[in-house]
């Protein structure tokens, strides 16, 4: 464990808490992509199957459980409890366009052709693009509430901090995982446009509004 990884995990945790609190407090999931949330639930389910096979640490187990449970809780709130507020007219990104290529790529490029390893790889590939429906929703409506922007910033920062973690681990531990690194780069790059808008607008107290 190093500081970048810890900050990355905390940033991820913060994103999840911000999102759940936003939905719970406002009793609304307007502006949030249910497609992205379903994809995240798929991502963490397929990645953390090793919870039952491999013990790494109490921290590792605890965080994995939180991420899985929170992902399903979010999907539940969006599709069942606060279904009436879900913006399904704008949330039109097709999930299969992300799930199927990720699965094919995981079958082709992986560390080992075993069920757990392919599912882990699939989750890494899918995670890198899972935010696309959310970014698509923001671009369709042309704006995002501040709280949604904070959520996206925390979620985007998490993989960015993991990139620093991987640089650190390469030098300090001689450890690297190309699949995670390349997917993490893709994931972080997808947020760049958003990061720019967040820093230039939201942090200055303005609403995140896309140029018409």
């Amino acid at each position: 464990m190093n500081i970048f990884r810890l900050l990355g995990d905390l940033s991820h945790l913060l994103a999840i808490i911000v999102l759940l609190l936003k939905i719970w407090k406002t009793r609304s999931c307007a502006g949030i992509s249910g497609k992205s949330q379903i994809l995240f639930a798929i991502v963490y389910t397929s990645r953390y199957l090793d919870l039952v096979t491999t013990y790494i640490s109490a921290y590792n187990t605890f965080m994995k459980l939180i991420f899985v449970v929170a992902a399903y809780a979010t999907v539940y709130l969006m599709y069942i409890k606060f279904k009436a507020t879900y913006d399904h007219n704008h949330d039109t990104f097709r999930m299969e366009f992300l799930v199927i290529p990720s699965l094919i790529l995981a079958l082709l490029i992986n560390h080992e052709l075993t069920v757990l390893e392919v599912l882990w790889t699939f989750s890494i590939y899918l995670e890198s693009v899972a935010i696309l429906p959310q970014l698509f929703l923001v671009s369709k409506t042309g704006e995002a509430e501040s709280i949604t922007s904070h959520y996206l910033f925390a979620l985007g920062s998490y993989r960015g901090l993991y990139l620093l973690n991987w640089v650190y681990r390469y030098y300090a531990e001689d450890h690297y995982d190309l699949i995670a690194i390349v997917a993490g780069l893709v994931q972080t790059v997808l947020y760049c446009d958003f990061f720019y808008l967040y820093i230039t607008k939201v942090l200055k107290g303005k609403k995140l509004q896309l140029p018409a």
């Binding site: 991820h12 080992e112 993991y162 531990e173």
Partner: peptide, 10 residues
């Protein structure tokens, strides 16, 4: 380290 490692990251 490398191929077949358990994945200790989240």
């Amino acid at each position: 380290d490398g191929i077949g490692d358990s994945h200790d990251e989240l």
